[in-house]
Design a protein around this nucleic acid. Structure first.
Length: 471
RNA sequence: GGGGCCGUAGGGUAGCCUGGUGAUCCUCUCGGCUUUGGGAGCCGGUGACCCGAGUUCAAAUCUCGGCGGCCCCA
């Protein structure tokens, strides 16, 4: 079994997802895919980090998957943004329903009627909750596993309610911090970008997005943070009584990450051999491969078992299967195992193991006595730094700063430019076949560009913006 | 939104044009022998024409519809 080269990203992605047993893409409904056990383990390991971050400041809740048409339709702009992609439940058995039920495309309209009941006075604020749920959208474009789905199987959405615009705005900054911590943990570089007015979340005051760059130069939105102001509060009558006895509309935020974070994890770090996973989220962190020769099996196996025992606090596999060693190397490289030990008769005699890391070709000897938890954790951290550095370098190569509009079309990747906030100028740069992601909210440390300059269209005051083909 | 291509064992292909016993192909899988420091070899076995309707003595093959996949343009 040979993977297509990562140069052909689309092919590589489809193949690696299947062959590394992340998702089974053969489920017979468009846009729905099955999580294999191995993929699901990665998902759990990744999400437990996000849960850890969220649990510090939010309470986990669960709201129903079905939303009555009457609630979904209340906020005018919001429903306009979703109406052509909502799945409807129209019947209970054979009986037509009086009020159609929507399969949630997102949960604002499920939650906010209840927030109205939960929020009574200033002491109830701020309210901060999150849930991890599936959501449904009737996508008509190409669907892709983990990237464009009709059922998002794990939308990790947080919703907060605050006393005023400023407090909510402060919380938006905090939420950006949560997501930065999460993606730093995964060693995935990102751009924090303020979406244009005309491309923000329907019903939001403004939207800040996390975009990463895929190997083919297209960008992937891997997280969004929205300031909802009091738009939804007014629609759903979410008011509180202040200490002065007055009643005010609350201000809200919401932010979410889907399984696109897994798509980014696979795509950003993977190589021609398959997955490359950071130590913390690898279902198998360490594999030990015995090199067995006839008559010497016992000494080798004994050394391997001892090593596995020393490392038992990690997720270790001792692969004593029938395959030859080379076949095992390929198999575990495909699965992204960060650390590999080999022990053969020579090594067992010398009291060493041959170690190698998933992201590097070289092998080296380590005395068995020196292998302990501390050493492994040090290697894990170094691995993460290497992954982050390499990924940032590759992404930086995919970004080009341009000073004339003609260059936009030629560049196969992300185009950075200075642009004013005028909507006409924004639409004009989009004429060259790329979408305007928006303006950099902050500059990534891996990009060395001027934060402001003259607008490429009108010459006015401009700030650094990005254009790209998007997923 | 517009256009094109495609659906045959778990995966990949040939066969379709010109209807007539689905292939001694690659891979995977199972059993056996043999082997093991970067995808071993030989022998044997299991396993398939997307769904529905139509045309026909006869459909993987022709026609229509559905479902599913891929690519290009906007």
């Amino acid at each position: 079994m040979t993977l297509p080269s990562k140069e052909n990203f689309s092919e590589w992605y489809n193949e690696v997802i299947q062959v590394a047993e992340i998702m089974d893409i053969r489920y017979p409904v468009k846009g729905l895919y099955v999580w294999y056990p191995f993929g699901f383990k990665i998902r759990q390991l990744v999400y437990s980090k996000l849960r850890e971050i969220m649990d510090r400041e939010h309470d986990e809740v669960y709201f129903p998957a079905l939303i009555p048409e009457t609630e979904l339709g209340k906020e005018g702009e919001h429903i306009k943004g979703f109406e052509d992609e909502v799945y409807w439940i129209t019947h209970g058995g054979l009986t037509p329903l009086d009020v159609k039920l929507a399969l949630r495309p997102t949960s604002e309209t499920a939650m906010y009627p209840m927030f109205r009941l939960w929020v009574r006075n200033h002491a109830d604020l701020p309210l901060k909750v999150y849930q991890v749920v599936n959501t449904f959208r009737y996508e008509t474009k190409h669907t892709r596993p983990l990237i464009r789905l009709r059922e998002i199987t794990s939308f990790k959405e947080a919703h907060t309610v605050h006393k005023d615009f400023e407090e909510a705005a402060e919380h938006v900054k905090k939420a950006i911090g949560f997501y930065k911590e999460f993606y730093d943990f995964l060693a995935i570089p990102y751009m924090v970008i303020r979406r244009p007015e005309w491309d923000k979340f329907p019903g939001a005051a403004y939207t800040i997005a996390f975009d990463t760059i895929m190997p083919d130069g297209r960008t992937l939105q891997i997280g969004t943070v929205h300031h909802l102001a009091d738009n939804f509060a007014k629609t759903f009558e979410i008011k509180y009584e202040a200490p002065n006895g007055e009643h005010y509309y609350a201000h809200q935020t919401c932010y979410g990450i889907s399984e696109r974070c897994i798509a980014a994890l696979i795509s950003v770090h993977g190589d021609d051999q398959g997955l490359v996973l950071p130590f913390e989220v690898a279902p198998v962190q360490i594999v030990i491969i015995p090199i067995l020769y006839k008559g010497k099996e016992e000494a080798v196996m004994e050394a391997c078992r001892k090593l596995a025992e020393r490392l038992k606090e990690f997720r270790v596999v001792l692969d004593d299967g029938e395959e030859r060693p080379g076949a095992k190397y390929y198999k575990w490289e495909l699965k992204g195992v960060p650390i590999r030990f080999e022990i053969g008769p020579r090594d067992a005699e010398k009291g060493v193991a041959v170690a190698s890391f998933r992201d590097e070709k070289k092998k080296f000897e380590v005395p068995l006595d020196s292998i302990n938890e501390e050493l492994i954790l040090k290697w894990a951290e170094e691995l993460k730094q290497r992954l982050r550095g390499a990924a940032a370098e590759r992404m930086a190569e995919r970004v080009k700063f341009v000073e004339t509009p003609d260059e936009i079309e030629e560049w196969n990747g992300v185009v950075a430019l200075h642009l004013c906030s005028n909507e006409d100028c924004g639409h004009q740069v989009e004429e060259y076949g790329k979408s305007l992601l928006g303006w950099f909210e902050e500059l990534p440390d891996w990009l060395d560009l001027e934060p402001s300059g003259k607008c490429i269209v009108c010459g006015g005051e401009g700030r650094l913006a990005a254009l790209a083909r998007t997923y």
